[in-house]
Design a protein around this nucleic acid. Structure first.
Lengths: 340, 340
DNA sequence: GCTGGCACTCGGTCCACGCGAGTGCCAGGC
DNA sequence: GCCTGGCACTCGCGTGGACCGAGTGCCAGC
């Protein structure tokens, strides 16, 4: 019906106005700023309905209305058009990310870029090891009983571990071992590595067997360690901006949760590539995030995301813009990692 | 003289009281809480002198006194005894840092530990490449004209760069090259590497020469890049605590400066090992840090620091405790890196 | 040279008040 | 039947004045 339609336009206008002004928005201001074609009184009636349905609320009796989490949710799902990035923004992305020298650099630039584009806190996850493939496995003797294992993935991640080997080992043996392991693992997805280990140990020459077993064990350990997933965070200064307004009393916990990484990583675990996920306010289980929204998406060229990236900010954020920015940066990062 | 002596005790008491309460401290409170053996009136006289000399100041006419930067400086240089860490703290350090699995892990744990011990923002610098020695140099062929160079240092840092090689290169040649470069560089300090490059190119077989030159050039580039120095930051949530009080209006710039890293790295560049450097408030050149103090020290076993670590907080901080914590953590990190 | 007393200053808090934005409701008009 | 203008009401916020108390500087006396 026409009425419903107008009511939604009112809701959209409220969200947009509140996001840009941070002031509870009244019927009069709404009528003045948005060409809704009706008088404030009519808008008031619509607002009363919207409030009853839980999309907006009044902070005080005599104040304007503010969107609720439910209101933002509806806005994101139904009302916000995808906002294409400006040419300048596209150019900025390219400029910013080109010339990155290694993975760390790519992710560092991405997080700064994303923070700058959205004016929110940006988070970028390192490519998950399990979904990366082995590019090279290097062994450096530290002593006769200790090897340094260096794993290099196709996404450019480098992990190193010290392996205590059960028997004294000479340089030639290490070289043999290196050749053997690289032949077995190079090009293989790390998630599949565990399947190969058993056969590999059995098939290898007796004098190498304990070594293969030790190194393989260490390799598999890297996949389950908590450090497996790493996070780069940037733009926390953006949070400080209106922290007192947007996060009354929850600013510190929020910063702590971000530093903790675990919370964000859990949220990130669910993201798929190319589908932007938005979780709003109370939808977030972690208490410190109940006043925040999280916009995230996976990056990576395949059908399975290599990792995730996103932004965290107050529920009062520019969802359309942030979704566009997050998606665009993810696409570029995916390309960069695919070609390196 | 006896008077001077008492006056300094008054200054010390003012600093200690202000640091712990965050309230301007008056003569009466001082007499009550610190056993100075004289009446408030006498203390008032001393305070008047201290104020005239610039060590303390009054925020308002009818308020207590607050130490100035000069007052803190004097306190740090002359009045604060070194505060030994408690047994529990020592144990916590050991527990926290043991079990670190690689360099990234060591530094990550250090920064969290330091933030926790001091309740300030902690910063830890990666070991400078120039002062590290080569443990291993690995070359992985990406295509016939591109090599991935992986540099592993004795401190556990790993750097990777893609090298575009001028001529098509086969696996055997890469192996030769790898052997040659490792023979030349392994064990050498990277700062000295630039000296070796010329001779190495001249001495190598003609077919390897362009390759040696290309890889060496990339190697030297890593030493001058801005990414050469990296920083881990933790505990920013601690800053948020009383940000409005301690950093009125400068909170956001401060966070920005920390994220920028450059500012901190510059401060860190001057630190020596085992000598803790403290720079207080206005002593810091960067504007965002003029309300903050920075306590830092180098870590590393030799006479030259491998890198620096420290804490940033309000000038109103527990200098004695923070100096002790920073020093202790630096010592542990130095040990850990030496033995790995 | 230290001490107790005293007058003075002045920032912070509390409270009363008025303003204005915003609302809900109602009667009238298209 | 829905929209509109009018109107009475609510209530948060900012303002201004009074009060309180912590703290000071100075001075006379021990």
């Amino acid at each position: 019906m026409a009425h419903d339609d107008r009511r939604l336009r009112v809701l959209r206008a409220i969200v947009q106005d509140y996001v840009s002004t941070n002031d509870p928005v009244g019927s009069k201001a709404l009528a003045a700023r948005y060409d809704l074609g009706v008088s404030p009184a009519t808008i008031r009636n619509d607002m009363a309905v919207l409030e009853e349905e839980g999309y907006i609320t009044q902070p005080h009796t005599s104040a304007g209305r503010v969107p609720t989490d439910k209101g933002y949710r509806f806005f994101v799902d139904r009302l916000s058009a995808i906002k294409p990035l400006s040419a300048a923004e596209r150019k900025a992305i390219e400029k910013f990310l080109d010339g990155a020298v290694d993975l760390h650099d790519v992710l560092g630039r991405s997080v700064r870029l994303l923070a700058q584009l959205t004016r929110q806190v940006a988070v970028v996850q390192y490519p998950t090891l399990a979904r990366s493939a082995v590019r090279h496995l290097e062994l450096v003797p530290l002593s006769t009983s200790r090897l340094l294992m260096v794993l290099i993935t196709d996404t450019g991640r480098v992990e190193q571990r010290v392996v205590e080997v059960p028997v004294d080992t000479e340089a030639d043996t290490v070289a043999e071992l290196r050749t053997l392991l690289n032949a077995a693992f190079t090009g293989a997805k790390l998630a599949e590595a565990s399947d190969k280990v058993g056969d590999l140990v059995d098939a290898s020459a007796p004098h190498l067997r304990p070594l293969v077993a030790a190194v393989s064990a260490t390799l598999l350990e890297t996949l389950v360690e908590p450090s497996e997933d790493r996070l780069v965070i940037g733009g926390t200064a953006n949070l400080a901006q209106g922290s007192a307004l947007d996060f009354p009393g929850t600013f510190r916990p929020l910063l702590e949760a971000l530093e903790e990484q675990v919370v964000v990583l859990r949220l990130m675990a669910e993201v798929g590539p190319s589908t932007v996920t938005v979780s709003i306010g109370e939808e977030n289980e972690h208490e410190a995030l109940t006043a925040a929204s999280f916009v995230s998406v996976g990056y990576g060229s395949g059908d399975q995301a290599l990792g995730g990236l996103g932004v965290v900010g107050p529920t009062r954020m520019d969802y359309a813009g942030n979704i566009a920015a997050v998606r665009a940066v993810a696409r570029y990062v995916g390309h960069l990692l695919a070609e390196s």
